[in-house]
Design a binder for these strands. Sequence first.
RNA 1: GGGCGGUUAGCUCAGCUGGUUAGAGCGCCUGCCUUACAAGCAGGAGGUCGCAGGUUCGAGCCCUGCACUGCCCACCA
Length: 946
Amino acid sequence: MPPHTDNMIDPLAAPLPRELPKAYDPAAIEERWAAFWVNERLFEVKTPAPGAAGPRAFTVLLPPPNVTGNLHMGHMFEHTETDILVRWHRMLGETTLWLPGTDHAGIATQMLVERQLTTEGTSRQALGREAFVERVWQWRKHYGGAILSSMKRIGDTVDWSREYFTMDEHLSVAVREAFVRLYEDGLIYRGAYIVNWCPRCQTAISDLEVAHEEQQGKLWEIRYPVVGSEEFLTVATTRPETMLGDVAVAVNPLDERYTHLHGKMLKLPLTDREIPVIVDDWVKSDFGTGAVKVTPAHDPNDFAIGQRHGLPAISVMDETAHMNAEAGPAYAGLDRYDARKKVLEDLEAQGLLGAARDHVNAIGKCDRCKTVVEPRLSTQWFVAVNKEPRSKESMPGRMSMAGAAKKAVEDGSIRITPDNYSKIYIDWMSNIYDWCISRQLWWGHRIPAWHCGNCKQITVTRQDPTHCAHCGSEKITQETDVLDTWFSSGLLPVTVFGWPPPPGQSTPDLDAFYPTSLLVTGFDILFFWVARMIMLGCYFSLDAPMPDGSPRTLRESVPFREVYIHALVRDADRQKMSKTKGNVINPVEIVEKYGTDAVRFTLASMASPGTDIAFNEARTEGYRAFANKIWNAARFIFMNVERAKEAGIVVDRSILGAAPTAAADAPLDARWIVARLNSVAAEINAAFGDYRFDEAASLVYQFFWGDFCDWYLEIVKLRLDFGETADKGGTRSALTTLLQVFESALRLLSPIMPFLTEELWHALYDGEPPAQSIALSRYPLGAVHSDDAAEKNFSLLQELIVSVRGLRKDLGVEEKASVPIRVRATAGVSFADNLEIIQRLARVSEVASVQAMPEGAAIRSTPQFDVQVIYEKKVDVAAERERLTKELAKLEKGLASAERQLGNSAFLDKAPAHVVDGLRKIEADTRLLLEKTRKALDDLGAEGPH
RNA sequence: GGGCGGUUAGCUCAGCUGGUUAGAGCGCCUGCCUUACAAGCAGGAGGUCGCAGGUUCGAGCCCUGCACUGCCCACCA
């Protein structure tokens, strides 16, 4: 049953190995594999049968991108990290589910479609609610899948069969169920409160959706005449226009300046009202004039004061932030800022305006449209996050949502990485206010509440009611508000797995996948989404019993066990990417330019924890070169496989896939590369486990390029001999190790660079790999210290080769010339077994082993050996002297430091033995080298020109 | 007003529980078209680890203060 046969591409139409082009061209292979992964449905996960044995599934919920969005660098970064972990776990043999979907994004989507309507000369009001909502659905159908197709392109291994949309029928049913249950449990209420109101979006928004910005403003003083006196009471305000809705002036009870005015009435200027002077502790005497005008309908603090003192609230603005009739005929209809101007002018004219001081204040703006938010008195729906549910008698001591959500992190049921975010989360959860969940929008989950026209009561039900539940009247109308987008996305960890189950039961998916294993997300939605998921997830999953029927504990009710907070991606100048700044880097463009693998590797390598990352294209260029390097290593290998075939040396493919080994009597290079592979693999596994993508990337880079290509491949050229007199056994053995190590290395790299490794892996198996995809093969586990002797001996060999190369440079030996060398090795060190390696890699014609080095020659030394290049051309004495002098100074400094420490009895007493022993060895080595260097310098001087 | 990060080579960044003489990539300099790769190979230069104190046998790493810088939270009109 092949799906999407329309764009099916046969991956096995890949070029034959020997025809690999010279330069790696990602464009030539990536789309092919991207389509293959999707079409072959390789990453779909069937729900395990109930009671199935085996390890727990590794489950990750993708933070659902907004339908309005396009893939940006932040997504790509997040997806790269997640995909790496998901691929890694899958390759470790775990049942691995990465679940994708999209979010309907209430405000954002409605705004976008409304803007579209405006360009068409119409509006949502003209269309009407039903037609508008239908229009949004249409929009979503056409444009809502942009991010998902980008995800397919960049190789995200999600389970597409489980893709959801937050307004899907079954999810909407679940959202309604959740709302009704919370309402029944007394945790959802409706009431008139001051909320953040966006006059442009014309909806309430939550505290989190308000972004504060510092702004230079003014603090105006206004004189309010005291009734029956010549006196004035001067208040200070940043928002003079709201004075039209003042109902009192408050002073601190201890402020002696105003004691005589307590309880007096004031004439409210520009109106015909009189308002009282009241006292309230909240007022700070040292701010402004110490007297605060109280406007309960337009300021959250004033609202609280009004509540405490039983004052009325007078709204003087409408939902568009224009003054209304309550503001009086002179102001009605004016925009809030025009009204401010006029109020100030009128006060001035009456001589009631006092000083105006510069004042910096934080001004709230709508997160979406940047309009200045207006605190507004309105009736909204709230979730009581700090209240305990009333109908949970079956669960005594059940905590409030915030309480449980806080405890889940405190007691380690949820682990947040990096750890410092735990504290931020807990602090936030400790000071959380009730959550305003109603939005005056049309696009979203409509609140399942009906208002009765008769008794005015509210009916909240699972099924649309026909009559009022309280008085039976049929004069009922549904609430027009919809739910905050985060209400439905906060439920996702349970709803995507089939919640709600029948009473007292669970669902197969909840049994198999809940709690999910990991959430990878950015700090920016820690409160918006992560915190809400924890609150709602803990609350609702508690109702579903464990697979064995026992009740769920808090530990088992959390939506995820781990949260990994990744860094934020900025542009190369550390600026936050934003459309308005025009510095948004489109990842798809970069991907097309350098290849997905190079971009993924860049992001992985820059993903060190703690700091934001500045995306740097120059690095991507470097990693494209890395991909090319591997590509060419593969070409080299395939070429030699062909040669071997022609020479009658056949290496069976069955040797592939096994963990490489090298016998104790195998050549040093074989033992070494196997040992390196083992330790690097072990380190990479550890790095992934710690979310150290950067370490993993640098380890695999260093191994592939530094060890495998620069050293091993060069040496293997010696071992691969296809001539008539060739040692066929030796060649076959070398080829076997080469292929095995390369195959393992591809698997090692594949989570970070899935496309390149997939292509080469298939080619390596000549189109008949043991699994459909490298992503379904097993990850190399490696082992530390698998052959320390080989690693140590090889690095000595490397040192010798590097020394000779350096000497050649110093002596000005022609690049192509082969030269003889003299080596004096200390006891126990021998290069005899590896002469041909030295000859090849350092272009040496002959190696003479000597007991003493001649005087006056340019020599390089290490504690283990001295080496001289025999060449008639004189060394550049001045340059050599300079080099040696520098070297000598360095050694002297090092020796002095070592001696100082070793001469310090406190050090010998307190430092651990291994440190002391290590330093002793270093001291001895340094002393030896120092002597050698000093002698070399002396010899040089003796023969020098002066 | 609270809280949290950052400051290491010209640039971008590593440096894991404090342990010799601090690393990588890019860039730079020198020499190489060595038939896997010039998107390459080989060799090299380059750092008083933001500043000032302190703890320690020993500090890039721990403590205190300062400077610069970025972010988050916050109901002082």
